[in-house]
Amino acid sequence: MNFKVSEKYKRSGKRKTVLAALLVAGLIAGSAWMFIASESLYHKIISAITAFLLIKYLPHAYKSIRTHDASYPVVEIIESENKIDISHKGAVVSMPLSDIESLRIQNIKGSVKSILLTTKSFSNLRFEGYENLAEMAELLKKHTPAGKTKIATWYHR
Rank of each mutant, 00 (worst) to 15 (best):
H60M: 06
S71V: 06
V24G: 02
L53A: 13
P96Q: 03
A70N: 09
R104T: 05
I151F: 15
I100K: 02
L27F: 08
K89T: 02
T149L: 07
K120P: 00
W154H: 12
N107F: 14
V75D: 04
L23R: 02
N2S: 03
S94V: 05
Y62P: 00
I55T: 12
E76D: 07
I100G: 02
K83W: 00
K16C: 03
E135D: 15
G13M: 03
K109G: 00
L53F: 14
L27A: 11
S31C: 07
K56T: 15
F52G: 02
I77Q: 03
K63Q: 12
F3V: 00
G26Q: 08
P73D: 01
L97K: 00
I36R: 09
N82A: 06
V92W: 00
S111E: 11
I77V: 14
T67H: 15
T118R: 13
I77L: 05
Y155Q: 15
E128S: 11
E76C: 04
E81P: 07
K148F: 13
S31P: 01
F127V: 04
G110F: 14
L116E: 07
G30E: 00
K14S: 03
K150I: 09
V74R: 06
V5P: 10
E81L: 07
I86G: 09
A51C: 08
F35D: 01
A21P: 09
A134E: 14
D69H: 13
L27H: 02
K120M: 11
E39P: 05
L125Q: 15
E81G: 04
P59D: 08
Y9M: 08
T67Q: 04
E101V: 11
I65W: 10
L19D: 01
W154E: 06
L41W: 12
A48R: 12
P59L: 11
I78R: 13
I49T: 14
A137Y: 07
K8T: 09
A29Y: 12
S38Q: 04
F3G: 00
G147Y: 15
L97I: 11
F35P: 01
V112W: 11
L140T: 02
V92E: 10
K141F: 06
N132C: 02
T144L: 14
K63L: 08
K148H: 14
S114T: 00
L103N: 03
E138W: 01
A25V: 02
F127G: 03
G90L: 13
A134L: 14
M34A: 13
F35M: 05
N124P: 08
T144D: 08
S71H: 09
T50F: 05
K150D: 11
A37M: 05
D85P: 07
K63D: 08
K89E: 04
E128I: 09
I28F: 05
L116W: 00
P96A: 12
W154G: 06
R11D: 04
K4R: 13
K10G: 03
K109S: 07
K89W: 05
R66F: 08
S123E: 13
K109V: 02
I84T: 03
S121V: 11
I115Y: 03
E7D: 10
V5C: 08
K109E: 08
S121F: 04
H156R: 12
E131N: 13
W154V: 11
Q106L: 14
V112I: 13
